[in-house]
Each structure stands twice: as C-alpha cells, then as structure tokens.
C-alpha cells in the first residue's frame, strides 16, 4: 500500500470545472488515479461523465474554466488531442464516429504509426501491421472484414464498441478512459471485451471506466468506484459501492447530499 502511494499518479484531477457551449457541466471534480488502478465512474444520465471523458481527451468545444489536470506529473490541458494520445491517453467513445471513405485498416495504421513514431519506434509496414491487427481482432472475436470497411460506418452497436477496444489494444495507452463501452454489447461480447481489457491491465496502465451497470464491474473489478452527479463526485468507495447502487439507485445519494449541503 505505502509503496504505491510513493508512485507518481497517472492522472490527477483537481477542482476541475468545465463548460460546454457556455453551460457549466463539471463543477469541481477531484480524482487521483494511480498506476495500474481501475476506477469506475457511475452516475445518472447527464451528470457529466462523458464531459469529463471528453475534457481529458481534449475535445474542442469543451472549455476548462477552472482547476488542473496532470497526466504523469505534466499539465495535460495545454496539449492538443493528438499530443495527448501520443503521450498515452486513450478515450473509447460512447458514440464512436463514422468516417466514410476511410478504411478501418488505413485509419488504425495511421494512428499506430503516429504513436510509434512518437515513441521512437520504427513505423510498421502493411504486412507487419496486418499480422498484429489480425491477432488482436481474433482475440476480440471481430471479423477481419471489418478492416476493409470504412471506420465504424454501418457497424452494429457492438461492432463499434469492439472496434474501440481493438484500437486500445493496438495503441497500448497508459490511461484508457472507457465511456460506456459495455452499452450495446451482448452478454458474450461483454465477456470478450472485458477479457480484452483485463489482459491489458498491468502495473503501468490505468483505466477510468464509465458505466451504468454493475455487470461490467463484476468482470473488470475496479479498485475504486466514484459517483458523479451534477458535475461533482458525490461519493467514492470500493467495488461494493457499485453493488449498493445497483440495489438502491442514485436517489439515496442525492438525498444524502442535499441533507449534507
């Protein structure tokens, strides 16, 4: 326990405030994620979970109005989205974007090589790239045909989510933010995807897992669970908090909060 505390946190969010289109959404988030840890973020619809995820990834239009975000000890906020990705931040989108005319293979290869170049590694040629990707696709139960199709275009809900995880396994980030990756997955897919995530769990990699369902967290067992409501973390606890929420809903937390305020 004490040894992990001396390690530099992967992510340190302090009093983060952010607005979308001038509307304040995040209103003072505090969160510290140590190396190798998995934190879950739960909370009602519209509470700001995706906003937090997008702010971390640097999405244009999400304005940070206060607070700090450090990634591996460095200020993350001035970095462009691509520089964050190269530094090791990955967001699995709640709603992956469709990109007509650009094949999944072309896209993944461009991404992987941009990141490899940043890490000082050789670019992969088409042959090595395919070998790498096909293995990872097989592990996720994805048809290799999805490589030649335009990115996410016409993919089923589950295929899109698997495609996000595929990108994660190929890019090997230090911090992966999974925004409702479980929604839209069938029961088997949920298991396969969870196994994919668990296989990537390591002492050097941390996860922020946004979900509405305890079911995912029984596969990917979190070290901490936070509840986001109204743009703030209103409760944190260990894995058992998720079970408690499943049972009681969010109402009791909000009641407690109001009582405390």
């Amino acid at each position: 326990m004490s040894s992990t505390l001396t390690l530099q946190p992967v992510l340190e969010v302090k009093n983060l405030h952010a607005s979308v289109n001038g509307t304040p959404i995040l209103r003072g988030i505090n969160l510290t994620l140590e190396p190798g840890k998995v934190h879950a973020i739960m909370g009602p619809n519209g509470s700001g979970k995706s906003t937090l995820a997008n702010v971390l990834a640097g999405r244009p239009g999400y304005d940070v109005t206060g607070g700090t975000v450090n990634f591996l000890g460095e200020d993350l906020l001035p970095l462009a989205p691509e520089d964050r990705a190269r530094a090791g931040v990955f967001l699995a989108f709640q709603y992956p974007t469709e990109i007509p005319g650009v094949s999944n293979a072309q896209f993944l290869k461009a991404a992987l090589n941009a990141i490899r170049q940043h890490r000082g590694q050789e670019k992969l040629d088409a042959f090595d790239f395919l070998a790498l990707v096909k293995d990872k696709m097989a592990a996720l139960g994805m048809s290799p045909k999805l490589l030649e199709r335009p990115v996410n275009e016409g993919f089923s809900g589950g295929e899109k989510k698997r495609n996000e995880i595929l990108q994660m396994t190929v890019l090997e980030p230090t911090l992966a933010v999974l925004d409702e990756t479980d929604s839209g997955l069938d029961i088997d897919a949920l298991r396969v995807v969870s196994e994919g995530v668990n296989a990537l769990r390591s002492s050097g990699r941390s996860f922020l897992v946004v979900t509405h369902y305890q079911r995912l967290l029984s596969y990917i067992v979190p070290d901490r669970v936070h509840v986001l409501a109204g743009g703030r973390i209103v409760r944190s606890g260990d894995a058992s908090l998720a079970l408690e929420l499943e049972e009681k809903g969010y109402g009791w937390l909000e009641d407690q909060n109001e009582a405390a305020a």
Partner: peptide
C-alpha cells in the same frame, strides 16, 4: 471525425 482521428494520435 477530425477529433476522432486526432484522439488517436493523428496530427491535425
């Protein structure tokens, strides 16, 4: 789409 690509490390 631009953001999606950039979020994967591809320069603007």
């Amino acid at each position: 789409a631009l953001f999606y690509l950039r979020s994967r490390g591809i320069a603007q």
